[in-house]
Simulated scan of single mutants.
Amino acid sequence: MPTTTRSATVLVVACAVVLLLPACRPTADPATASPPAGTPGATASAADTAPPAAPHATASLATEDAAPSPTATPSPAAGTSAPDVTPTPGPGVTTAPRTVTLPTPGARFEYQLGGADEPSEDTAVVVRDSTATPTGRYDVCYVNGFQTQPSQTERLLRAEPALVLHHAGEPVRDDGWPDEVLYDLTTPELRARVAERVGHVIDACGAAGFDAVEVDNLDSYTRSLGRITPADTLAYTALLVERAHAAGLAFAQKNTAELTTQVRALGADLVVAEECREWQECHVYTAAYPVVLDVEYDRAAFDAACAEQSSPATRAAGLSVVLRDRDVAPRGAPEAVHEAC
C-alpha cells in the first residue's frame, strides 16, 4: 500500500521551528493495512481428473521455523521488472520494502529442491528450498504455504491444533504425503493466523536475499474433503501475496491452473509449474503471466515442449522448461536428471 505523508502545512511549521537543523524533510507514516477481502468463488476444481501430484521435493528439507542463511549483500535481480511495490510492511517485516523484479522471460533455470548444486554457467534462475542459501542469480525460494512440512507436523498438532484442518476429529492429511497435514483456512481469523506463521518463512527468504517465493500446495483445497473452498484459498493467497511483496519478493503461483485468472488478479507475478506440458496446461499460464518456469518429469513431454519452443510458430513467450528426476536429486546422485532447453 502507498504510504502517506504529513501535510505540507505541518511541515512548514515544523521546519520553521527547527530552522537551525541541517535538514528538514517530510517523513512517512505507515499506512494501516487491512487484510484483503475474500475473493469470489472460483471455478470448480478438476481434482477428480487431475494427475497425481508431483513429489514435494523439499518435503523432508524445509521447516517453517528455519530461516535461510543471510547473505552479506543481496544481489540485484536481472531481467524485467514487475510493477514497483511499496506496501506497508506486514507483521514481522522490519526492513524497508525492496522493488519486486522478475527474471528475463524464457531465461534458463534450475530446479534444485532436492539439494543445492553449483548452477551451470548459463543458468539465470535457480529455485531452492527456503533453508538453502541463494546463489546470487535470480533466486526463487520454495515455501510450503498450504500444508505443514513433515518435520513440523507433530509439533503443530500438539502446540496449535486449531491451525490444522480436522474432519471427524482427525487431522486431514495429504494422501500423497501423509506426514503433511492441511492448514485450516475456513475462517478469516484462521487464515490470518496461518498467514502469519507462513509469513515468517517468507520474510526470512527476503532477508536472505531471494528474489521470489514459490508457495506450494495451492491446490490443497482439492484434498480438503470439501471443507476448504476456492474462495477460502484465494482469500488466504491474497495475504501471502501481500506479505511477499512487503518483503520485496515476487510471488510465484505454484500449479493449480484452474485458479490462474483469480491468483493473477491478486497480484501474483510469475508461475512455477510442474508438468504443464504433460497435462496441456502451459498455455493457461503463459496467457496470464510473463514468466512461466515449467518442470517436466517425463522425457517425452520434455522433448515435445522443447520441440515446440524451438519453432517460432509454436513457441510460447515467457516459457522456460527443464527436465528433472522426480526426487529432484542433486547432480551427484546416480538417479539425478538435469536438462534444459
Rank of each mutant, 00 (worst) to 15 (best):
T104A: 15
S224Y: 05
A268E: 11
R137W: 05
P52E: 10
L113H: 04
S69Q: 14
R197F: 14
T73S: 12
A57P: 00
A53R: 14
A132D: 15
T135E: 09
V100F: 02
A250R: 13
P89M: 11
V93A: 03
D294Y: 05
G38T: 12
A66N: 01
P334N: 06
E258P: 07
A195C: 03
M1G: 04
P74A: 06
A50G: 13
V213E: 00
L270T: 03
A333Q: 12
E154G: 06
E160W: 05
H338K: 01
A301W: 08
A305D: 00
P150E: 14
E258N: 10
L259K: 09
R6Y: 12
G90E: 07
V201I: 00
V271R: 00
V263S: 03
P26W: 02
A67F: 02
T131N: 11
A304T: 12
V337I: 13
E335K: 05
D139F: 04
V292M: 09
P70E: 08
L323A: 06
A252P: 08
Q149D: 14
G41F: 00
R98C: 02
T104Q: 13
A288P: 14
S224I: 03
R137Q: 10
V213M: 02
Q149F: 15
P22S: 03
S45C: 13
A329C: 02
L19S: 11
V215H: 07
A66W: 03
D129C: 08
D48A: 13
F302H: 13
V215P: 14
E154T: 07
G332W: 10
F146L: 05
L249I: 04
D117V: 05
V292P: 09
V93M: 06
D211W: 02
A14F: 09
